[in-house]
Design a protein around this nucleic acid. Structure first.
Length: 915
RNA sequence: GCCCGGUUAGCUCAGCGGUAGAGCGCCUGCCUUACAAGCAGGAUGUCGCUGGUUCGAAACCGGCACCGGGCACCA
């Protein structure tokens, strides 16, 4: 605490974030500051955080997401809302399972060897370790979430939600089981969804083969990138309009190596211009061929096993891995004279996102969600801006995906996950599970048995499906399963569903956002027709890219552990830095991270800002005479000086702007605005101007009141961005006990009366004049401490003159000058330095003269004035300008021209005087 | 192929109809008792190219170029 370190002079010159941050994190948690009561009053505001995968630890992307969410919820809390921010982690079936299997392999074991139960024990141990690490990282960021409500996607309660969702969807015919071509990942031994497949450009070959016509009258030439699939060919297709082959349609070919007789069919999918215009058709191993096969009633012949090796249907190639089989098939074809040619060919090959190997389209019996009815409901809602995407353009991405959507394969041949609540009636198929085994879907085994008995008789035997559900199926329930659904009477659900905003990266709009809306569309968690959409707003942010502009990811190995930066600069600095980088349109942010030194100039800048605020507070503590903002009270308006009125006007404006920005997700702008206000206006000008008056007994009290008020409110406004630092400084200033938290303070009341735009303008002009005068000092070779004897500022604008006259004592200090005069007319000041700024002139009488410097200064001013004159005059010379431009623009242009001309005259005259 | 972005000071990016901005970096001078993680002053841009709309375009519209991303994909 600052107050513990009296006297104030003993305060360190440099802010130490590490100990401070730990102390406030503890205070927040111990006091349950972010554990809301659903029955408490206050408009609800809820955010469920995107649950990080328990696959290790967090990287910068999570820190970025956290900083954004926490800024939003802390602001809303200060707005008096009843805020729930709910944290948690995701079990990430396939990712975690592949980590564990890799570990087991290194140990010379495997999951099969371990058995399901032992394997799951290991997975839970891993979850504890990884989840613990993640929670510790999130806490170090100062996340104001309710840790008491922390959830994990495999929690018992969340499992109930998954089971309930599955049962209901199945009852409504929205979940079905069937044999289809799925994306099979041989590496993980599981089906994956379309979204888990990524296309990669690969350098391969295009093999051209000849298939002989049955009966020995020639050949058809086909090309393929996957020769091993020819073993499963059941046809060759040509375009129906292709005259070259029209006569052959309906005839048959004899498949080489296999000897199977396969038909030539006509299908418009075939592009006659590509290759020979003949396509071999392998319906069981290619999605397009599957469709062609279906249209023409071609048989499906699966030639591969689920581990990616060739099966018995591949005859002499059985047992070979699919890539070995490729070579062997090519060799055999060549040996038998069926190989025409081989050409290098670059093409896109679908790869399993997790397994990192090419997926194999494989015929397999899986569970699917029928997505179209769900998507239709989401599309209708989106037409009403439900949810509202920010930035809006992402709604198109979401909509495009929901249009022409394909069914969602939700079963995974994995162990780590939610086991599918379906039981096979194995007594019907002699104790074995086959694709044809009947099943029942139920909430638990007892219910399943009852259902089975009702349907199949009293002596049935049942066995639960071995498979688990796609992780995203449970993640898709996150906004309501975490609030207590399917318990319809859950108080949290009643208070906080639908949630207020979902904050996430654009990369998971399909995976997650759309799945959540689709599942909510059918489950309608609160049973209220108008309130099913799980979040009012979806705030989409960019990704964190590294110094080479690459997306940060675990697999690329370029992730940055946020703790490295936190240890070096503090969590507040990291948070402020990343939020400040956010552009309005939700673009990616690039972090200038130096891997050799673990440093970042961007974060360092934010750390410097924290230190600046720390020192401003030190200054205040040294000058408030032991008083606090409370004991000082509000300043008497009659006592306010010019600079006071200015900074209070600015404070009110910043309050208004910042609240508007925080409230509309313009977080980067909020951060930038506060940074500029705090550093430039509060520290550079207000504190400098207050220094003199804080020493003057007659003016001291008002000066202290203004200083205390401005800093206190600044800290409140900055709190959402830099929670620890502001908590520390606010307590230092107010002396409040630790039990009273800034985090729970209301946003400062807006003082509309203080707003004075004209004063802001005139004061800004005064600041510019000070700058010009200081520049003249430097030009004239004055030493920093040396005083100027006389300063005259002239202006023709009465309002500005009024402000300048009030500021005379301040100007004397700021410019270090003995005598300040404000006048409407230029006095005769031979051999003085003269500068011009806006509508005013500044003249400085120096003790010594540097005529060359003076001359160059005047020449510079003259050149600038002449350039302005040229530009303005040419605009005014255009007759259309006066006719068509708005009157105020024309007037302003004329006024500017007059001033520029006056200044040019003045500069010429002064130059003439110099001789 | 379809759909989004982006191109502004050396770097990272604001600005989105009225004479170009910030931070960092750079140059000069300062340890001026809040802060050298600082203070004061300064320099720096044919606002990707090209047409058009307009009295006026970095901003609006069209075309082009290059960079990035998403979706779909032909064997």
């Amino acid at each position: 605490m600052l107050e513990d370190q009296s006297p104030a002079e003993a305060l360190a010159k440099i802010y130490d974030p590490i100990s401070t941050e730990a102390r406030w994190q503890q205070a927040w948690e111990q006091q349950g500051a972010f554990h809301p009561d659903p029955l408490a009053p206050g408009e609800p505001f809820a955010v469920v955080i995107p649950p990080p995968n328990v696959t290790g630890s967090l990287h910068m992307g999570h820190a970025f997401n956290t900083a954004l969410i926490d800024t939003i919820v802390r602001f809303q809390r200060m707005q008096g809302k009843n805020v729930l921010c709910l944290p948690g982690t995701d079990h990430a079936s396939i990712a975690v399972q592949s980590i564990l299997e890799k570990q087991l392999k290194e140990e010379g074991s495997s999951r099969k060897a371990l058995g399901r139960e032992a394997f799951l024990g290991r997975a839970w141990a891993w979850k504890e370790e990884s989840g613990g690490r993640i929670v510790a990282q999130l806490k170090r960021l100062g996340y104001s979430v309710d840790w008491q409500r922390q959830r994990f996607t495999l929690d018992a309660q969340l499992n109930r939600a998954v089971v309930e969702a599955f049962v209901r969807l199945h009852q409504q015919g929205l979940i079905y089981r069937g044999e289809y071509l799925v994306n099979w990942c041989p590496a993980s031994g599981s089906a994956v969804s379309d979204l888990e497949v990524e296309m990669k450009e690969v350098d391969g070959f295009l093999w051209h083969f000849r298939y002989p016509l049955t009966g020995g009258n020639g050949f058809l030439e086909v090309a393929t990138t996957r020769p091993e699939t020819l073993l499963g060919d059941t046809g060759v297709a040509v375009n129906p309009d292709d005259s070259r082959y029209a006569a052959l349609v309906g005839k048959t070919l004899t498949l080489p190596l296999v000897g199977r007789e396969i038909p030539i069919v006509a299908d418009s999918h075939v592009d006659p211009a590509f290759g020979t215009g003949c396509v071999k058709v392998t319906p069981a191993h290619d999605p397009n061929d599957f469709a062609i096969g279906k249209r023409h009633g071609l048989p499906l012949i699966t030639v591969m096993a689920k581990d990616g090796s060739m099966n018995a249907a591949a005859a002499q190639f059985a047992g070979l891995d699919r890539f070995e089989a490729r070579k062997a098939v090519v060799a055999a074809m060549e040996a038998e004279g069926f190989l025409v040619k081989v050409e290098p060919y670059r093409h896109a090959v679908p790869h399993s996102e997790r397994g990192k190997v090419p997926v194999e389209p494989l015929l397999s019996t899986q569970w699917f969600v029928k997505t179209e009815p769900l998507a239709a409901r989401c599309r209708e809602a989106l037409a009403q801006s439900k949810p509202q995407f920010v930035p809006e353009r992402w709604s198109k991405v979401y909509l495009d995906w929901l249009t022409d959507i394909r069914d969602w394969c939700i079963s995974r041949q994995l162990w780590w996950g939610h086991r599918i609540p379906a039981w096979f009636v194995i007594s019907e198929t002699a104790g074995r599970v086959s694709d044809a085994t009947p099943y029942v879907v139920a909430r638990d085994e007892t219910e399943a048995l009852q259902l089975a008995m009702a349907q199949y008789g009293a002596d049935v035997q049942i066995e639960q499906d071995e498979d688990v559900l796609d992780t995203w199926f449970s993640s898709g329930l996150w906004p309501f399963s975490t609030l207590g659904w399917p318990d319809g009477s859950a108080a949290d659900l009643a208070k906080w569903y639908p949630t207020s905003v979902l904050v996430t990266g654009f990369d998971i709009i399909f995976f997650w956002v759309a799945r959540m809306t689709m599942l909510a569309a059918v489950l309608n968690p609160r049973g209220a027709e108008e309130a099913w959409i799980p979040f009012a707003d979806v705030y989409i942010h960019g990704l964190v890219r590294d110094e080479q502009n690459r997306k940060m990811s675990k697999s690329a190995g370029n992730g940055i552990d946020p703790l490295l930066l936190i240890d070096r600069y503090g969590a507040d600095a990291l948070r402020f830095a990343v939020v400040r980088e956010v552009a309005g349109a939700g673009q990616d942010i690039r972090l200038d991270y130096n891997r050799k030194t673990d440093s970042s100039a961007t974060v360092e800048g934010a750390r410097n800002f924290a230190n600046k605020l720390w020192n401003a507070t030190r200054f205040a503590l040294l000058n408030l005479g032991g008083e606090t903002p409370q004991s000082l009270g509000v300043p008497d308006p009659a006592q306010l000086q010019l600079a006071d009125r200015w900074i209070l006007a600015r404070l009110a404006r910043v309050n208004q702007e910042t609240a508007q920005r925080y409230g509309s997700y313009a977080l980067g702008e909020a951060a930038k605005g506060l940074y500029e206000f705090a550093w430039n206006e509060v520290c550079d000008w207000t504190i400098e101007l207050l220094k003199r008056r804080l020493q003057d007994p007659a003016q001291q009290r008002t000066a202290r009141q203004v200083l205390a008020k401005v800093l206190t409110e600044l800290f409140v406004m900055l709190h959402p961005l830099m929670p620890h630092l502001t908590e520390e400084l606010w307590h230092g200033l107010t002396g409040f006990p630790e039990q009273k938290l800034l985090a729970l303070e209301p946003w400062p009341a807006l003082d509309l009366q203080a707003i004075d735009l004209e004063l802001e303008d005139n004061f800004a002009e005064m600041i510019e004049l000070v700058r010009v005068a200081r520049n003249l000092r430097a030009t004239g070779g004055m030493k920093p401490a040396q005083k100027v004897s006389r300063l005259v500022i002239t202006s023709a604008r009465p309002e500005l003159l009024k402000v300048l006259k009030l500021a005379i004592p301040d100007l004397a200090v700021l410019i270090k000058v003995e005598l300040v005069e404000i006048s409407t007319e230029m006095p005769e000041m031979p051999r003085s330095l003269m500068g011009i700024s806006g509508t005013s002139q500044v003249q400085l009488q120096l003790p010594e003269q540097d005529l060359d410097a003076l001359r160059s200064r005047l020449e510079k001013d003259l050149a600038k004035a002449e350039k302005d004159i040229a530009g303005l005059a040419s605009r005014l010379a255009n007759p259309n300008f006066a006719d068509k431009a708005p009157a105020d623009v024309v007037l302003e242009c004329r006024a500017n021209l007059r001033e520029a001309e006056a200044q040019a005259d003045l500069a010429r005259k002064s130059l003439g005087d110099l001789g």
